[in-house]
Design a protein around this nucleic acid. Structure first.
Lengths: 206, 206
DNA sequence: GAGGGGATTGTACCAAAGTTCAATACACCA
DNA sequence: TGGTGTATTGAACTTTGGTACAATCCCCTC
């Protein structure tokens, strides 16, 4: 799976500043896409590629924080770089607390923007890797029938086949059959593999 | 193990401000201890109790960042609240990036300080719990002889007794003996327990 | 109604894990 | 030097896990 080229989204309602930033981004060698309002960006269906957001804190309707909140609510992760021409320290602190990568004050130079974008894109790629791993594990888990999943969880809980059989109201031999199929489907060589599989899924889901 | 009362360290080289902050902290119901310089605080041997640091960014010799860097270097974790009378946005962003809990601009009101302190102390207690858990697990691990630890790691790697025996150049029965002792010492009921034990130790060490 | 997937059970057998009892060997300490 | 702790091995045995083959049952779909 080759990761496609990253893209930088620029959201600012001031035309001049938006164009300036967008041009800077492109001069730095990144693909850029501009939006003149929070809604325009939120309604835009993001392509599946590493991305980050360069966002003006002061927007017409919504503030930049509302945009981040909306993305969070939609369970969308886009590393964000805030920028502002008239920000305050409390505002910058709030931005960083919400997980912003950087908070730039206009005017900012190309170096600062480049560093911020690279940092944000790195974070984006890490998020994507994490998501990809979770999806792969979920897909693998989905190949198990519900009964097999029950057996899997009991096995990783450390129960004996005998105990699992009682829990499920079946005979031990039945558990063995399911268990063997679980091992095969998950390409597991040992119980240790199963435990790490389930724990990893749980960790990534959290 | 009862956790002792939390304490708030105040470091500021301005006498008036230091006393004011210290008094505010105490009025909020927290124990406070003041220091007039970075060195004074760094050379002070911190008691073993939940704590946080309220630190002026502008100090005489070292800046507040130097203090945090020194603590980090000494592998000391003290959730930090920065405060400043003449800070800038870049400075506040830098502070938050280094993991600061809050960045307050003077003058700040009691509510802001209270919220920041509570948040910092909560983080401190979480750090202490994590550290305590690691220490407990390390202590448990230390009850194993080196041979037993080798067997443990091979078992959690998913190897069969037969394979472990070959790796260690001993007979399978020897491995069984060590393995049984490991299970007993770690109070483990299954291989799943052993895997979670070793993985947890690794996670906490990281 | 035929076929397929899933769940279940049975029998038989082999491999691995775990337990118990006993013994030897070595290093280190009081 | 005797005792302790650790490592090692052996034998015998029980329990548990894993595999192979076969069969039945149920639900759902073509």
């Amino acid at each position: 799976m080759r990761s496609s080229e990253p893209i930088v989204f620029v959201v600012d309602d001031e035309d001049v500043m938006r164009d300036t930033v967008s041009r800077m981004v492109q001069q730095l060698g990144f693909a850029a896409q501009s939006f003149s309002s929070a809604d325009a960006f939120l309604q835009f269906s993001r392509p599946d590629r590493p991305a980050c957001l360069v966002l003006d804190v002061m927007l017409g309707g919504d503030s930049g924080f509302d945009v981040v909140a909306a993305l969070d609510k939609g369970n969308v992760q886009v590393p964000t770089i805030f920028m502002t021409g008239s920000g305050s320290i409390p505002m910058s602190v709030r931005a960083m607390k919400t997980g912003a990568v950087e908070f730039l004050t206009k005017p900012f130079d190309k170096d600062a923007l480049r560093d911020a974008i690279q940092s944000a894109l790195t974070r984006s790629m890490e998020q994507r890797e994490r998501r990809a791993e979770l999806e792969a594990l979920e897909a693998l888990l989905a190949t198990l029938t519900s009964r097999e999943q029950e057996v899997l969880f009991h096995v990783t809980a450390g129960l004996l086949n005998k105990e699992i059989a009682m829990q499920l109201g079946v005979v031990e031999q039945t558990v063995k059959v399911h268990r063997a199929r679980v091992m095969q489907k998950l390409a597991a060589r040992s119980v240790a593999d199963l435990v790490r599989f389930t724990d990893r899924v749980a960790a990534l889901r959290a």
